[in-house]
């Protein structure tokens, strides 16, 4: 019993890690809170769903298309909607991503209705035995997939030229500008990567989770907790925090209260915000 709770907690945790790491990248580089992260996850899920429906291919095969499509969407959002307001007050940026979230989420509701949809992958409900535990194949794919993508992101940020540019901008956009880096382009690429991670997450989750317009809401908010717990710009931190939250939530849901399991995460969030604010940013000046 506990072992299977743990496995489904790890699946959830893997999704949280991906969405959270993507958000963390955007947050760390562009310095905006992307309220649309959850809505983008939902959008990615529908994106994959429609490809599966039209082409009749396995959902896992949609991964490259969804990832690239979501990256383009992210790039577009940054260049057309957020870059123009970079100089304005931060309110504008915050409320714009909020508006994007409303548009995507409710647009999906209006277009595709509130019906719950699902897709079937080759793995179906197959399971295999692992260390005496029965593990679902799609669960294993989700966990492994999330781990691989997080690892690739980590390598990309630390080894590639663009990764170095992204890290430079995230630390000091002014000096990065002086060093001849096109900061706005780096912003757009960071947003694109963050969205692509969400796309990957959505593909990995839909063989297991239902698809409906509000599915992303919870994930979007939990991504913030991941950022807060994991530390600003810290990819490994986000991965660990995501797994921790997923497992905690599942254990709480099974052994205490299913209904309150989401509330408990928000509570963790509030407590983290209150007592570990240094996890998200370094306070330079104290005023209150």
């Amino acid at each position: 019993m506990f072992a299977s709770v743990l496995v489904s907690g790890l699946v959830l945790g893997g999704i949280y890690s991906l969405v959270g790491a993507g958000l963390n990248l955007i947050f760390g580089v562009v310095k905006i809170i992307n309220f649309a992260q959850g809505a983008l996850l939902m959008f990615g899920a529908y994106f994959s769903y429609w490809i599966v429906t039209w082409l009749g291919i396995d959902p896992y095969l949609t991964l490259p298309i969804v990832a690239v499509g979501m990256a383009l969407l992210g790039y577009l959002i940054q260049t057309t909607l957020i870059n123009p307001v970079l100089k304005q007050e931060r309110t504008s940026q915050l409320l714009i991503t909020f508006g994007i979230s409303l548009l995507i989420q409710n647009g999906a509701l209006a277009l595709w209705g509130p019906d719950i949809r699902f897709v079937q992958s080759f793995a179906g409900y197959d399971t295999f035995a692992f260390l005496g535990i029965r593990v679902g194949v799609s669960a294993a794919i989700a966990i492994l997939g999330a781990a691989i993508i997080i690892f690739l992101l980590f390598v990309f940020l630390n080894k590639s030229k663009m990764g170095t540019a992204i890290r430079a901008v995230s630390q000091q956009s002014d000096s990065a500008l002086l060093a001849g880096i096109d900061v706005k382009r780096v912003y757009a690429i960071a947003f694109a990567i963050g969205s692509a991670m969400v796309g990957v997450a959505s593909v990995l989750m839909i063989p297991i989770y239902d698809i409906y317009p509000l599915m992303g809401e919870q994930f979007g908010v939990i991504a913030f907790i991941v950022v807060v717990l994991g530390g600003l710009g810290n990819v490994q931190g986000a991965a660990i925090a995501g797994v921790f939250l997923g497992v905690t939530q599942n254990i709480f849901a099974v052994y205490v209260s299913n209904q309150l399991s989401v509330a408990i995460l928000f509570l963790i969030f509030l407590i983290t915000l209150l007592f570990r604010p240094q996890g998200i940013f370094i306070r330079k000046m104290r005023v209150s």
């Binding site: 714009i96 508006g99 979230s101 409303l102 995507i104 989420q105 409710n106 647009g107 509701l109 209006a110």
Partner: peptide, 11 residues
């Protein structure tokens, strides 16, 4: 959802 989506656009 259409109305709230439009709110998003307005925002």
């Amino acid at each position: 959802g259409t109305d709230i989506a439009l709110y998003g656009v307005i925002l």
